[in-house]
Computed example of a mutant assay.
Amino acid sequence: MIDLGISKIALIGAVALIVIGPEKLPRVARTVGALIGKAQRYVSDVKAEVNRSMELDELKKMKDTVESAARDVEHSVQTASSDFEKDWAETTAGLTGHEYTPLETPPLSYQHPGKKWRLKRGSVPQWYKARQGVRTKALSSAARVARFRPAVRPDV
């Protein structure tokens, strides 16, 4: 690119100050800066688009290789299954007189009639909890406030 050193930038600034004048120089500098920024953004967008297209080409190549590998695997599975079917037919050709009998089902294991696995039971009996004053049911906040609110006596 263009090799701009400090001396060249100072020379360009001095010529611009003489030609444009000190009144219009800040506005021109802002306009030039905005144009340079737009050019840099355009160049970066073009670079990003080129990189995306290169990655897309690489992905297409990778997709083609994966598809060809999948076709090869499918072909090998089909040939293996046809070979298996041929071998199976040859093996079972002499067994036409025998019938298939399924195995007996195993007897059911014993289950205790009072045991319900879905029911969760605590290890402390309810009568013990009641005697000790342990809460067994949850109360809402409003119910708890109403329960423990002191009784209001009318002043007579």
Rank of each mutant, 00 (worst) to 15 (best):
Q78E: 00
K60R: 11
A146S: 13
L11Q: 08
H112N: 09
A69K: 07
A34S: 10
W127P: 01
G13D: 15
T65Q: 13
E90A: 14
A142M: 12
V50M: 00
P26F: 05
G133H: 02
S76F: 07
D72T: 03
S82T: 07
S141A: 01
R121N: 05
T136L: 13
I12K: 08
Q126D: 13
V32A: 10
L17P: 04
A80Q: 01
A93L: 11
P125K: 05
Q126R: 04
E55D: 04
H112G: 05
S141T: 06
K137M: 12
D155H: 07
K116M: 06
P150H: 00
K137W: 10
Q78L: 02
R144F: 07
E23L: 11
T105D: 14
A70L: 07
P150D: 08
A93P: 05
K116H: 13
K38Y: 07
A69E: 00
K47G: 06
T92K: 12
K8A: 09
L103W: 03
R41M: 01
M1E: 03
R41A: 02
R52C: 01
S81D: 05
L35Q: 10
R30E: 04
L59M: 12
G122F: 07
G94L: 03
L35T: 11
I9G: 00
I20E: 07
I6N: 03
A80S: 10
A29N: 07
E67S: 09
R27Q: 06
A143P: 04
K137Q: 08
L59W: 06
Q111D: 01
R30N: 14
G5M: 12
E74T: 13
R27F: 06
V152S: 11
G13C: 05
S53A: 08
R71D: 15
